[in-house]
């Protein structure tokens, strides 16, 4: 049972990690807590639904409950959600930045934007639930006492690939390096001739794309609804702060820890307190390391 919980925790954690990377970017590069980030997950999932409705989820291939069409839909949704994130920045956050607003203004603008984005989903797709595919898989025993769905194994693998790709991008590409420079010190980055607005645009597009993929993964297990992203918001923030903002590894480890804490807590203290668990772990970590696990002392 413990092994099963560990496996479940890692699965949940992988999805949280993908979303938490965007939150972490927001905190470190854009310098504010973007409460609208969870809505990008929702939008990504629903945009993929549009393509799936058009092309179908594809015939189940091998052990999976969906075909290549689903992956194509995910990529398209990631592109569009990246664009949506940039659009929101253009309409709201860039204007606030140019006005020299206090970061708290951006936080509450994000909160307002989240309300709007979430309920536009309700207006377009309705309150009800949607499915990419109604296939129900039976879990296979991957290790003694550990059962996983083939879809979940695929998601886990893909999440790892995405994170590695992102790491390479941040380490070697020009924009990636500029983003890291921005995270370290915006004024220094500007002085070095980095085009700040350009970096910010790419940050939004990347965050949106990653959020969309996390959203599609969420939708695959098993359904979509307008509050799907919102219900994950706090886990995302807990993960990104737990790891220490600004480091990719931090967000990923933070996501995994949150996933594990939720799943294991059900055994240790009962499921009534499950949703508080990520925070209690967070408090414990912050008590000993106020800057987060991988954060640098300020």
């Amino acid at each position: 049972m413990l092994a099963q919980s560990l496996a479940d925790g890692i699965l949940t954690g992988a999805i949280i990690a993908l979303g938490a990377i965007g939150v972490s970017f927001g905190l470190q590069i854009l310098k504010f807590a973007n409460f609208a980030h969870s809505e990008l997950l929702t939008w990504g999932a629903y945009l993929a639904l549009v393509f799936v409705a058009f092309a179908g989820p594809g015939t189940p291939t091998a052990e999976l409950s969906f075909g290549w069409q689903m992956m194509a839909a995910m990529l398209l949704a990631a592109l569009l959600t990246g664009g949506l994130a940039w659009l929101v920045d253009l309409l709201i956050f860039r204007r606030l930045r140019r006005m020299g607003s206090h970061p708290m203004s951006l936080v509450f603008a994000a909160f307002g934007a989240a309300l709007v984005m979430r309920h536009v989903v309700v207006l377009i797709w309705g309150h009800g639930t949607h499915f990419y595919t109604r296939e129900l898989q039976i879990a296979i025993e991957v290790l003694p006492g550990v059962r996983m769905l083939p879809d979940q194994i695929f998601i886990l693998g893909l999440a790892i690939v995405i994170v590695v790709a992102l790491h390479l991008y941040l380490t070697y590409s020009r924009t990636g390096m500029a983003m890291r420079a921005m995270a370290e010190s915006p004024s220094l980055a500007r002085a070095c001739g980095i085009e700040v607005e350009n970096v910010i645009r790419w940050t939004w597009i990347l965050s949106g794309g990653l959020a969309a993929m996390a959203g599609v993964f969420l939708g695959l297990t098993p359904q979509l609804h307008p509050e799907m992203g919102f219900s994950l918001l706090l886990a995302l923030f807990a993960a990104s702060i737990l790891g220490g903002t600004g480091s990719l590894a931090g967000a990923v480890i933070g996501g995994l820890l949150v996933g594990l804490a939720e799943n294991l807590s059900v055994f240790l203290i009962g499921s009534g307190y499950k949703t508080a668990m990520p925070f209690l772990v967070l408090l414990l970590v912050l008590f000993f390391r106020p800057q987060g696990l991988f954060g640098e002392k300020s």
Binding site: L96, M99, A109, L115, H119, L123
Partner: peptide, 22 residues
């Protein structure tokens, strides 16, 4: 739908007030 529109309205007013009365 009206319920959703109400929440959208609240969100827009919040954003607008921050943009126009920072």
């Amino acid at each position: 739908q009206g319920g959703a529109v109400q929440v959208i309205l609240i969100g827009l007013l919040l954003v607008a007030s921050l943009l126009f009365r920072p």
